[in-house]
Write a protein that binds this DNA or RNA. Structure first.
Length: 278
DNA sequence: CGGCCAACCTGTGCGC
DNA sequence: TGCGCACAGGTTGGCC
């Protein structure tokens, strides 16, 4: 599920239910996900008031009034579901790892089959310098991201452009799906060396990245299996994929008669049109 | 440091 | 129906 648009969708579902609320009960049902869950997790957050939630790259940050923050990452298979005003408590499902109950009686459940996700505690003042966050590049939808920054990042890399755009140090939040979609719109072959992407192409990439992400957020993200939104509703951007998962199908570019190809780069599938992307 | 691969872990879908 | 394999939206540690 979770690249930037999916995480943003999850955040927008969680924030109205959690911001301003006291977490009456926080439960961690497992000792660790990708990293250890703080042994004091339940004690620290139970009774704490959540004052603000926001997204940084693919991380969701929850600031509590006490000065502690929780950093949440959904990994590959992480999902959040909200059970509004649930009484009695919803039965715990397989792979439900963390649960919050608010003072309004809403349950928030973090489920993650593969356990590549994480939830850690950190002082609110130390978020930006935390090892998970500090090296992340600019937010693609923010003011810090522009052609100049992107060009500087691409020029010093000899890796394929596909790999470079997946690197969170260069730009935050892109994952396999949205890099494939971006490169198709930009007409750039995923195997092209990053430092061979021209200045003009780099200038085009910036608004393309913004457009792809903005459109995906507006669609509620992409749903590959199960649900994307906290309510259980499906995102629907997957119906607008130009390349991702479309190996052997027709290129959607006007007048192009080629079919979408799949190659493997750094152990991940890349989908592209051999005619449109050079 | 840059670049590449394996590893983390479970589930699903497909060919036989 | 069952088995084995390939593959899945992310990140990182270890090795050239």
């Amino acid at each position: 599920m979770p690249e930037l648009p999916e995480v943003e969708t999850v955040l927008r579902g969680m924030a109205p239910v959690m911001e301003g609320r006291v977490i009456v009960e926080a439960k961690a049902w497992v000792p660790k996900l990708r990293v250890d869950i703080d042994p004091a997790f339940e004690q620290t957050l139970s009774g704490a008031r959540l004052v603000r939630m926001y997204r940084r790259s693919k991380y969701i940050v929850m600031d509590f009034e006490s000065g502690v923050s929780a950093i949440l990452h959904l990994g590959m298979s992480g999902r959040i579901s909200i059970h509004a005003d649930a009484e009695p408590a919803p039965e715990r499902q397989k792979h439900d790892h963390v649960t919050f109950l608010t003072d309004r009686g809403d349950y928030i459940v973090f489920n993650d089959a593969r356990r590549f996700g994480l939830i850690i505690l950190c002082s609110t003042g130390d978020i930006e310098t935390h090892a998970l966050i500090r090296d992340i590049g600019p937010e693609p939808l923010g003011n810090q991201f522009d052609a100049k920054v992107l060009r500087a990042g691409l020029k010093k890399r000899k890796s394929p452009i596909k790999t470079a755009l997946l690197d969170q140090k260069l730009v935050a939040g892109l994952g396999n799906i949205y890099v494939c979609e971006t490169l198709w719109r930009a007409g750039i072959h995923p195997a092209r060396r990053a430092d061979k992407v021209s200045k003009q192409e780099t200038e085009q990439l910036v608004p393309i990245i913004r457009d792809v992400l903005t459109e995906a957020i507006a669609a509620g993200g992409s749903t590959l299996k199960d649900y994307a939104q906290v309510s259980g509703e499906l995102g629907y951007f997957q119906h607008r994929f130009s390349t991702y998962g479309r190996e052997g199908e027709a290129c959607l570019s006007e007048g192009c008669d080629a079919t979408i190809q799949r190659i493997v780069q750094s152990n991940r599938s890349s989908f592209y049109c051999p005619k449109c992307q050079k």
